[in-house]
Design a protein around this nucleic acid. Sequence first.
DNA 1: TCCTAATCTGAACGATGTACAGATTATTGT
DNA 2: ACAATAATCTGTACATCGTTCAGATTAGGA
Lengths: 209, 209
Amino acid sequence: MSALKPLRSLKPRANYHHGNLEKALIDAATEMIRESGVEHISLRAVAAYVGVSPSAAYHYFPDKDALISGVGQSLFDKLADRQEAAMAAYPGESREAALARFRALGRAYFDWGNTETNLFRLMFGVFCSLDQKDALAARDESRAWILLQRSLDDLADRGAINPALRPYGEILAWSAVHGATSLIVEGHLPKDVFESILDAIEISLGVVK
Amino acid sequence: MSALKPLRSLKPRANYHHGNLEKALIDAATEMIRESGVEHISLRAVAAYVGVSPSAAYHYFPDKDALISGVGQSLFDKLADRQEAAMAAYPGESREAALARFRALGRAYFDWGNTETNLFRLMFGVFCSLDQKDALAARDESRAWILLQRSLDDLADRGAINPALRPYGEILAWSAVHGATSLIVEGHLPKDVFESILDAIEISLGVVK
DNA sequence: TCCTAATCTGAACGATGTACAGATTATTGT
DNA sequence: ACAATAATCTGTACATCGTTCAGATTAGGA
């Protein structure tokens, strides 16, 4: 656990007009949640970390929950970054490469949950739960969702999965990977079962190797 | 949203020596979390609801988190009750009955998440996350886990699933059902995909109908 | 019936989320 | 260049929270 001391106290600049306070608050909150968990951060501490008074935050967020929710939204993009990087390790047009990328996609999700547990909990917790409409719209635009769609299209194009089962690909893969990751992260299942989950997903989708 | 007013103010009994304060606090906290979500309850409100001073709780729980965690532990049993009731609707020794019970098990989990969302979030949130050892030990003794094991044994005994895949039954079924329930409850997936998840689980386990 | 242990109260402390009035700075129009 | 206006941030204040602790109340055994 590092110190998390105020930053701006070093800078000679006055406190008024920070520059980009909204982003600074989100970044600070992200880092603090990452280290301590969403249940242990306070608006005041985030403001102090940025070097600003607590009230300043209320010009950008209606309340603390909105700030936290802002952090959550931004995390889906960071997860997609990790997934993209993981998939890049398996280039190529072959069926084997496409399958390897598909597994890398799931494994990156799992790794994210294990290495960034506090952020993972935030993303799928109360603060990021939206109404059906908004959430589905947000999901359709999220890069992580699009990566999953494309990965399944890749498999289908190469005849690596049963075409009749293709429509269920996204929901099945996401459900199984997310469920396993959640249960493992919270300690309900041991870590070593995850690869079996990936195997099971492939079987469900009728993978032919 | 109902009122949640203090109860004991009506009773003529004095405040000292409540009787079974520990259980009363857990019950009250359960009901209040059920209605408002774990992020919106205070130790003081729970104590007031029971008709007791805030400090009284500290004779039974070291802190607020311990009370909440106590609530969470007790919920796994209530989930098992629902699952048992749901399975009882499909009696019989036939393969079809065993399959129907297996699906009822998953559907009851899903229904629990949808009707008792606040409690569901608590069960699998930070407050109920244990170290690997404790959690796995607790799980092995939980009735919900045992129900799942028996249901899979039933399927295997009747030759309804691929014997080679039997060992993966628990982790796969729980992961997929939990993942789908979580994602649907938080709005990331639409409700109507759940039955497809049950189909996919059966395919993964090599169900022969 | 008195003594002791168990149980609960009441007051207090520091920290929190939030509201609001006013101070400070940036920007725009002339 | 300069004043007027808008945007941004501070400081203070308040109710509420979790938690501590000294002491009041009660139960139950000697």
